[in-house]
Amino acid sequence: MLARRIIPCLDVKEGRTVKGVNFEHLRDAGDIAELAERYSREGADELVFLDITASHDRRATARDWVTRVAEVTRVPFTVGGGITSARDVEELLRRGADKVSINSAALDDASLVNRLARSFGSQCVVVAIDARVEGDAWRVYRQGGRVATSRELFEWASEVTDRGAGEILFTSMDHDGTRRGFALEAIARLATTLPVPVIASGGAGAVEHFRDVFVDGKADAALAAGIFHFGQITIPALKAYLAREHVTVRL
C-alpha cells in the first residue's frame, strides 16, 4: 500500500530560502541545506524547491545549492523554477535532484515534456500547473500565476500526461495562501482521471485539510509551505493525526 506523501515546499532565491522560516534550533533559518536536512529528518516524504531567482540573475553557479541539498537529504527532492531546456534538467539531475518541475516552459513548448520524458524518464518529469476558476472553467496561468493562458486545467493536465509527464503538481490559485483547505473537487477529478500521481497544492491551513485532500480529493501527495515553515503544523503531528484518521502515511 503506497503511503500518501507530505511534501514541504521551499522557495529559493540566490541559494537561500526566502519565505521566513520559523524553526527552533536552526543556526541559519535561511540555509537551504540545513532546512532540507531538518525536514527529511522530521519525516517529510519528499521536498520541493522552487527557485524564484529572476532569470537574468541566474548564473551557472547559481544552482550550487542543489548539490548541498543532495548531500544532506535522505529523501527525494524536486527542483522547479526557470527550467527551460534539457540542458537545465541534465545539470539539476547531475547535481543530485531526483525530479524537476516545469511549468511556463511547457506552456511555451509542450514538446519539451516529450523530450524530457524520453531523455530522462517520466519518473523525473513533474509538470506544475497553476490555475484558477474563471466562469465555469479552470484557466491555466503561467509565470507564477501572473499571466493567463488559453489553456484549460483538465485538458492541459491530460495533454502533458500523454506527452510523458510522470506527475502533476496542481496549485489552485484560488486556494493558495487562504489556509482554508484545498480545491477538493478539481483535485479529485485530476487524481481519478489521470494515469499518474497528483500532488495537491494551495490552501493547507489545518491538519483536517490534509485528511480531506487525501480522503475526498484522492490526492497522492499534498504540498504546503507556510504552515510547515512557521511551525503551525509539524510533520510528525500531522502524520500521527492522519494515521488516526486511517490515511496511510509513512511513520
Binding site: 516524504d45 510522470g166 499518474v196 509513512r250
Partner: peptide
C-alpha cells in the same frame, strides 16, 4: 494502477 509505482511503500 498508476504507473510508475512512485512513493513510499512497505
Amino acid at each position: 494502477c498508476k504507473v510508475p509505482h512512485v512513493g513510499w511503500n512497505r
